[in-house]
Design a protein around this nucleic acid. Structure first.
Lengths: 247, 247
DNA sequence: GCGCATATGTCCGGTATCGTACAAAGCGCG
DNA sequence: CGCGCTTTGTACGATACCGGACATATGCGC
């Protein structure tokens, strides 16, 4: 096991830490590869590990009793899956699942709590990240109730784009339908509209974002509201034009 | 300004504190009365005060750009409105508004942060409360997407009942419709069904819960999932039969 | 007790999405 | 190169809710 080097780390929380605090974490971090569909936490189970995401993205899902999962938030290299342990949670209320290939640094939950108590910048950053994630979930609650699927799809694709960092995503409409809690054929119609408008392109499990601005126009306000919070988390000015891809 | 006496305080967080930590807060607490429709925080504004709710309940609302508010969570005597300041938030992402008459202890946000840093039990409790509130919001996100209005209405009435502590609530269907993000006439139909089933009774702005068990049966799983989390927050056994009213 | 504002019940056509089914198209693997 | 699985497009009636309107009922002030 070799220690990660901070300059080479892509997770934005780890990268933002003072070197002294990063050093406290480094020994506990294990690099892991994430495969599509892999569960990092199961709803109701103990949270034994947390994951600082390096690439790809993770979905946090609430499991309803009829067996249907529904996405409540996305976690990319700006975040940590399982961060609720620092609020004192022991069990995961949500399922966290990798929706792409990707990588992460895994760390035991108890080690994180340990270091968190001794590293004030880490503590601040994790609490602020927790808050921003909460804002994302709250916006999703409102969005689910009010906005049409076309807008929600565009919002989701933008969020996925931001977190993955590449315009070409390996995603089936089936998967997206589960995330958004709608039928696949409904996604097919909405995606077809976006495709005919020339903002995205589909090819059998691959979706390419052709016109990012067009996609932003098709999305509801919820995308921008949440993206602004995430930008503020890392100290970027919220009223500047956003970079092409925020992470 | 007279200091509150802990034994007389009804807010469950304040009541659960060790006397020494309560003493640190007591000087900063001002008793305030809340009137129906009163805003405690406005979306986007600085959070200058937090409110330990004593009676009645508060709605946390996301304001969508079309001007329509949508409720994401309820806060009663088990909680604090504005608690996100302890995560480092400066601005409120949501509107918090009193939906009933009621009372609360107000405290400046900066004083809370101050005391929070010196009072470990308070800190723990506030973080755990934050987490449980987050679970509530997440469940709401899934519920908004999947469950029918009849179930959501029953869930909401149960949550309101828990937080107000009395079976008779002063609530119009109009108000409930805004909270749930649906049209009033849709609420009228769903409420009529519940009334004909004999679980609630309506009378011009007053709604009485007649058959609490019947209402629980009419609600979706989301009520019980969240109530279990709140019970655990104050150390009650989640697998025991719930008291008639949890707060 | 009467009038009026407020609250609730109900009706209409319209639409987004459901639930299910089936057909067509793309890619992987032999 | 073609078979088969996966992915996508599309059709169909059913339904929950919308958006707006109107009628009725309740309670409050006078």
């Amino acid at each position: 096991m070799h220690r990660p080097i901070q300059a080479a780390v892509r997770n934005r929380i780890l990268a933002a830490l003072p070197a002294a605090e990063f050093a406290l974490l480094a020994d506990h971090l294990t690099r892991v590869e994430l495969t599509l569909g892999e569960s990092l936490h199961r709803a109701g189970d103990k949270i034994t590990s947390v994951f600082f995401v390096e690439s790809g993205f993770i979905s946090a899902l609430t499991m309803l009793s009829d067996g249907q999962p529904l996405e409540i938030g996305l976690i990319g290299s700006e975040g940590v899956a399982g961060v609720s342990v620092i609020l004192g949670a022991t069990d995961s209320y949500s399922e966290t699942m990798c929706q792409t290939g990707g990588g992460a640094y895994r760390m035991s939950a108890s080690a994180l709590k340990d270091v968190d108590a001794r590293a004030p910048h880490l503590h601040d950053l994790l609490l602020r990240y927790t808050h921003v994630f909460h804002v994302q979930v709250a916006q999703t609650a409102a969005c689910n109730a009010h906005h049409e699927l076309g807008q929600r799809l565009a919002r989701w694709l933008l969020a996925a784009h931001d977190r993955s960092g590449v315009p070409e995503l390996s995603l089936t409409q089936d998967l997206i339908a589960v995330m958004l809690g709608v039928r696949r054929s409904t996604v097919s119609i909405a995606a077809g509209t976006l495709q005919r408008a020339g903002v995205i392109r589909y090819q059998h499990g691959k979706i390419t974002i052709v016109d990012r601005v067009g996609l932003e126009n098709a999305a509801c306000e919820c995308y921008e509201a949440v993206a602004t919070e995430y930008r503020a988390l890392f100290g970027e000015y919220p009223d500047r034009p956003p970079p092409a891809v925020f992470p």
